[in-house]
Simulated scan of single mutants.
Amino acid sequence: MSVQSILKVQRLTKTYATAAGPLTVLQEVAFEIPAGGTCAIVGPSGSGKTTLLGLCAGLDQPSTGTVELAGREIGGLTEDERALVRNESVGFVFQNFQLIPTLTALENVLVPLELRGNGVKESDAAELLARVGLGGRLDHYPMQLSGGEQQRVALARAFINRPRILFCDEPTGNLDGDTAHAMADLIFGLNRERGTTLVLVTHDLELARRTQRVIRLRSGAVISDEATGI
């Protein structure tokens, strides 16, 4: 893998066994993303976008093909080894926030540090929450926050480990227009500030066009892979 590449996907295929027979949801997908690059993966529902993101992040294993993430081929790793690569190099933002309801905003942001075994750095978490506009919400629980505020907590949590690559799965999908636009500004702003690679799955073509590159999927296959000129 090129020294400057953080993610390299080669001939990635994912097939599931179903009662009706094998179901292939990804077919021979291949691309490479340089460190610090931004890329959107778009396509209709059922095109394989979220499956592809999960494979790239090591949340699942391909049927065939390989994924090299942060310098390691992750397909042959154990679940614990893949989790270590994720903890060291990866941040996540999901459509449904995935906050822990019994923890405050500050405590939710600190979770990745605790899983990683690092010393708790409340000042770093508080600084990130202030950066996303929640400096006055540190002690609030998810149920006390709006959807947009919960997604801001999730974004702060994604950056607490200073990830080399950020995977976002429909990060604005559950937000209204103005809130979604503000969230997109925060994602791209933090990405630039911290030099993080960004891989974004979205239905929002306007959001996709803010990245440097757009990969389009249909029926599990790449039908176009184009630079946006950004």
Results as ranks from 00 to 15, higher is better:
Glu107Ser: 12
Glu107Gly: 12
Asn108Leu: 13
Asn108Ser: 08
Asn108Met: 04
Asn108Asp: 13
Asn108Phe: 07
Asn108Val: 07
Val109Phe: 02
Val109His: 04
Val109Arg: 07
Val109Ser: 04
Val111Gln: 07
Val111Ser: 12
Val111Arg: 10
Val111Glu: 09
Val111Gly: 11
Val111Cys: 08
Pro112Met: 09
Pro112Ile: 00
Leu113Asn: 11
Leu113Thr: 07
Glu114Tyr: 09
Leu115His: 03
Arg116Ala: 11
Arg116Asp: 10
Arg116Pro: 08
Arg116His: 06
Gly117Ile: 00
Asn118Ala: 15
Asn118Lys: 15
Gly119Lys: 15
Gly119Leu: 13
Val120Trp: 09
Val120Gln: 15
Val120Lys: 14
Lys121Glu: 13
Lys121Phe: 10
Lys121Leu: 13
Lys121Met: 15
Glu122Ala: 12
Glu122Pro: 09
Ser123Gly: 14
Ser123Thr: 12
Ser123Trp: 13
Asp124Trp: 00
Asp124Asn: 03
Ala125Val: 04
Ala125Thr: 01
Ala125Asp: 03
Ala125Tyr: 03
Ala125Gly: 11
Ala125His: 04
Ala125Cys: 10
Ala126Asn: 02
Glu127Trp: 07
Glu127Asn: 12
Glu127Pro: 06
Glu127His: 07
Glu127Cys: 05
Glu127Phe: 08
Glu127Asp: 15
Glu127Ala: 08
Glu127Ser: 14
Leu128Asp: 02
Leu128His: 01
Leu128Gln: 08
Leu128Val: 11
Leu129Thr: 05
Leu129Asn: 03
Leu129Gln: 08
Leu129Arg: 00
Leu129Trp: 01
Leu129Asp: 03
Leu129Ile: 09
Ala130Phe: 04
Ala130Ser: 14
Ala130Cys: 10
Ala130Thr: 10
Arg131Val: 00
Arg131Ala: 05
Arg131His: 02
Arg131Asp: 01
Arg131Gly: 03
Val132Glu: 00
Val132His: 02
Val132Tyr: 00
Val132Lys: 00
Val132Asn: 02
Val132Pro: 02
Gly133Arg: 00
Gly133Tyr: 03
Gly133Pro: 09
Leu134Asp: 01
Leu134Asn: 01
Leu134Pro: 03
Leu134Met: 02
Gly135Gln: 04
Gly135Glu: 13
Gly136Thr: 10
Gly136Met: 06
Arg137Asp: 02
Arg137Gly: 05
Arg137Tyr: 03
Arg137Gln: 07
Arg137Met: 12
Leu138Tyr: 04
Leu138Arg: 06
Leu138Cys: 10
Leu138Asp: 09
Asp139Gln: 14
Asp139Ser: 14
Asp139His: 12
Asp139Ile: 06
